[in-house]
Amino acid sequence: MNIPTCEHIKIARNLCGITVTLNRPQVRNAINGAMLNELLGVCTWISTQQDIRALVLQGADGHFCAGGDIADMLAAAQAYESGDQSAFYELNLAYGKLLLTMARLPCTTISLLEGSVMGGGLGLAAVSDICLASETALLAMPEATLGLPPAQIAAFVAARIGNAKARQMALTAKKLTAQEALDTGLVDQLVQDQVHLQQALATQLRAINHCSPAALKTTKSLLIQQSPFSEANDANCEQMLARAAQAFSDAVTQGDGPEGTQAFMQKRRPKWIRDEEVTA
Rank of each mutant, 00 (worst) to 15 (best):
Q194E: 14
H196C: 04
A215I: 12
L222V: 09
S212C: 13
N236R: 15
L197D: 01
Q204K: 04
Q225P: 10
Q194H: 13
A173I: 02
V195R: 11
K165E: 09
F229D: 05
S212P: 07
T172V: 02
L186N: 05
L176Q: 04
N236I: 13
H210P: 00
L205C: 00
L197R: 03
F229Q: 09
D188T: 03
C211D: 09
A235R: 14
R206C: 06
L176H: 03
Q225N: 15
D193Q: 05
N233E: 15
P228Q: 12
A207F: 06
L186F: 02
Q192H: 11
G162K: 04
C237P: 06
A164C: 01
P228N: 13
A235P: 06
Q179T: 11
K220S: 05
T177G: 07
L176I: 02
D234R: 15
A202R: 06
P228R: 11
L222C: 13
A200W: 00
A214I: 12
T203H: 04
A173S: 10
Q194M: 10
T219I: 06
E180R: 03
Q194Y: 07
D183G: 04
L186D: 03
T219G: 09
A232Y: 15
K220H: 10
C211Q: 14
Q226T: 14
A215R: 14
L197E: 00
D234L: 15
L216Q: 07
L176P: 03
L186T: 06
S230A: 15
N236L: 15
S212V: 04
D193M: 08
K165A: 08
Q204C: 08
L190S: 01
S227D: 03
L223W: 09
L190R: 01
A159D: 12
Q194K: 13
Q179E: 10
A235G: 09
E180M: 08
S212I: 04
A214E: 14
K165N: 07
S212E: 04
V187Y: 01
A159I: 03
P228K: 11
F229T: 08
K175F: 07
A170M: 05
D234K: 15
A215G: 10
H210K: 11
L222H: 12
H196T: 09
K217S: 10
Q168V: 01
S227V: 00
A215D: 14
I224H: 07
A214V: 13
R160I: 04
T177K: 01
L190I: 00
L197F: 03
N209A: 14
M169Q: 03
K174W: 03
K175S: 09
A181E: 05
T172Q: 00
A159C: 10
Q194C: 10
L201P: 02
N209L: 02
Q226V: 08
D188P: 01
H210F: 05
K175T: 09
K174A: 11
K217E: 07
L205A: 02
Q194R: 14
V195C: 06
S221P: 11
Q168M: 08
K217C: 08
T172Y: 04
Q179H: 11
I161C: 01
L223K: 11
K175L: 07
D183W: 05
